[in-house]
Design a binder for these strands. Structure first.
Length: 193
DNA sequence: GATTGGATCGCCT
DNA sequence: GGCGATCCAATCG
């Protein structure tokens, strides 16, 4: 029995709230090589107002267009010449906000992840935004993909107590470095750092 | 048209 | 902890 995918109404809310609520949900990706899935354990919120670290902070461009589209779709971009980053579009259409998925706890398809990642240890499979995209096979083909549908979707997972969520500044940005918009599950070994 | 810097990762010291 | 790889979109730094 697979849990049903989350509906757009789940994502159509305040982006900080969505970033917290996504912790504990299940990200699933199927391919010809088999399924791979993990519990989301680390997220970051990127806001349209007062957030110069956000790709959408200066208005719509070709790259960030998905962020201004309907909530519950993917925003996938290529970075540093070698990695993909996977985001979930949040808030209302036209706003331009998203949640970066930074780490997963692997739950299905670990052998497939090991082959894709060329790494053996579970802690090295999905403990970073580029790593989890490689482990699940997420690339630019999934940009704007509706996350209710296979082969890439998000379903309800674990119930997370609010006290189990830690907030810190975001990783790897050079602007708005003081804002605590990163969220992760306390003591989870798959968090990126 | 050219330059710049990046929501990263893995290897090196 | 530091740094190079390697491509691309945004900006003209």
């Amino acid at each position: 029995m697979k849990p049903p995918p989350l509906e757009p109404s789940f994502y159509r809310r305040n982006t900080v709230s969505a970033a917290r609520a996504l912790l504990g949900t299940l990200l699933c990706c199927e391919s010809e090589d088999g399924p791979a899935a993990g519990i989301i354990v680390e997220t970051e919120a990127y806001l349209s107002r007062n957030d110069p670290a956000c790709h959408a902070s200066r208005g719509p461009t070709r790259r960030n267009a998905p962020m201004f589209g309907p909530p519950g779709r993917a925003y996938v971009y290529f970075i540093y010449g070698s990695h993909f980053c996977f985001n979930v579009v949040t808030a209302s259409p036209g706003v331009g906000e998203a949640v970066l998925i930074r780490a997963l706890e692997p739950v299905e398809g670990l052998e497939l992840m090991r082959r894709r990642r060329r790494r053996t240890r579970a802690a090295e499979l999905t403990s970073g935004p580029g790593k989890l995209c490689q482990a699940l096979g997420i690339d630019g083909r999934f940009n704007e993909h509706d996350l209710r549908r296979p082969p890439l979707w998000i379903a309800a997972g674990r119930k997370i107590a609010p006290a189990a969520v830690v907030s810190t500044p975001r990783i790897g940005i050079s602007r708005a470095v003081d804002r605590e918009l990163r969220f992760y599950l306390k003591d989870n070994r798959y968090v990126s750092r």
